[in-house]
Amino acid sequence: MKEHIIVRVIASILIPFIQLYALYVIAHGEIGPGGGFQGGVIFSASIILYVLAFGMEEARSRISQKMSDLLSSTGALIFAIIGLLCILAGGSYLEYDQLPLGTPKLASHLGIYGIEIGIGITVAAVLITIFFEMAGRKDD
């Protein structure tokens, strides 16, 4: 689809808005429908659109294999480390309100915010990896 100028222009207009929407969904998981899973999926959809419009090589030069591998584990680690920080702060695993961040309610809020971001990173990176591995094998 590389020679289709209309597809490429429309995709390059749409992709920033899709990614902004993905971040909105992750950030607003606490007050509306959505959260890390949905936001991560929407973010990976924007990358898939990029691959469809601009090709695999171009996309790989933006998000290298190493980067997507690293991000998939980073998100899961953020989740697990926030859980461990709760133990260090004197609570049990994933007991966010023990975190030393102002009031217990605020600490819980921020802890949940943190794990939502972690979930979003992992989901987006894993789905991008799966898509790259499955679609990017024309050469063999």
């Binding site: 998981g29 606490e30 509306g32 429908p33 959260g35 994933l94 309610k105 819980s108 809020h109 949940i112």
Partner: peptide
């Protein structure tokens, strides 16, 4: 009160 999250679906999932 317990989690500081308005959407209780997210509160159940995350907390």
């Amino acid at each position: 009160e317990e989690t500081g999250i308005v959407n209780f679906v997210t509160a159940v999932l995350a907390s």
